[in-house]
């Protein structure tokens, strides 16, 4: 046990539930990531237990809990909730305390959040009601290509002749993928095309000004996407140490703030 005071952030995303535990010095001392499934309450509970164990702490040590994410109202032990927009912003600013543009690729939606030098939001955007460019799109395409989701990053990185997918729409993109399969194109080239499509959809959402930070589970599991994004914007993109946890860390920081 490092400290007897801990702050908890629980991020119940559409795909994964994440819990982050911070000590009063804002050090990440425990965390847990599990599939959200259909019982958000149970998953949030399990994640808390695992992360407490990792932090060698107990429930009595918890000063405050803030929940965030799609299932933020489904966390029985939370003292309050904040949106994932606010929590991602706060979590990222902890590691990059300067004007930044955050690009978060989540399971169900994408966000672009802009922060000024004080960490205050100057604007944000979420994708429209469409899966294009999200984790859900990647899952759909993996299923179409009959390859495990976890193999996508490796396949894309081995491509030598990328296929370009032109559509905005997941359903139309799937048709394009089928067409390329029928024409005997390499699976590696198709997967790279899928990655390119994700990056394109996100970059089209807003202008990427200031230092660009990428976060989210899709980035955490597919680092090749970052390399492609860097090529596309012809600039460096920064990734926090735990890109999938920034929302949960931000929530824990809110818990700490509200306690003072």
């Amino acid at each position: 046990m490092i400290s007897n005071k801990i702050y908890v952030g629980t991020d119940v995303g559409s795909s994964r539930t994440k819990v982050a535990i911070l000590d009063p010095d804002k050090n990440l001392i425990g965390y847990s990531i599990k599939k959200s499934g259909t019982d958000f309450y149970a998953r949030a509970e399990e994640c808390l237990e695992s992360s407490l164990k990792a932090a060698r702490a107990s429930r009595e040590d918890i000063i405050k809990v803030i929940s965030t994410g799609y299932g933020r109202k489904n966390v029985a032990y939370a003292d309050g909730s904040r949106t994932e927009i606010g929590c991602h912003a706060k979590g990222c600013f902890l590691y990059f305390p300067e004007p930044i543009t955050i690009v978060d690729i989540g399971g169900q939606d994408n966000k672009i959040i802009k922060l000024d030098a004080k960490g205050l939001r100057t604007g944000f955007k979420m994708n429209r009601k469409c899966a294009a460019g999200t984790g859900a799109f990647l899952e759909e395409m993996a299923a179409r290509l009959d390859v495990p989701l976890e193999d996508m990053n490796d396949l894309a990185s081995r491509s030598t002749d990328m296929i370009k997918l032109g559509s905005f729409c997941t359903v139309f993109s799937a048709t394009e993928v089928l067409e390329n399969i029928r024409n005997g194109k390499n699976i590696t080239d198709i997967v790279k095309g899928v990655f390119y499509s994700i990056i394109k959809r996100i970059i089209e959402m807003d202008s990427l000004t200031e230092k660009v930070i990428m976060t989210g589970g899709v980035i955490a599991n597919n680092p090749y996407l970052v390399k492609m994004a860097e090529e596309l914007i012809a600039g460096k993109i920064f990734i926090p140490e735990h890109p999938q946890l920034t929302g949960a860390i931000g929530a824990a920081l809110y818990a700490m703030e509200n306690d003072k």
Partner: peptide
């Protein structure tokens, strides 16, 4: 043409801002 959940998150995040 709308997603209530997305509207809610957008509005809540905006008021937080």
């Amino acid at each position: 043409c709308l997603s209530d959940e997305q509207t809610k998150t957008n509005i809540e995040a905006f008021i937080e801002q």
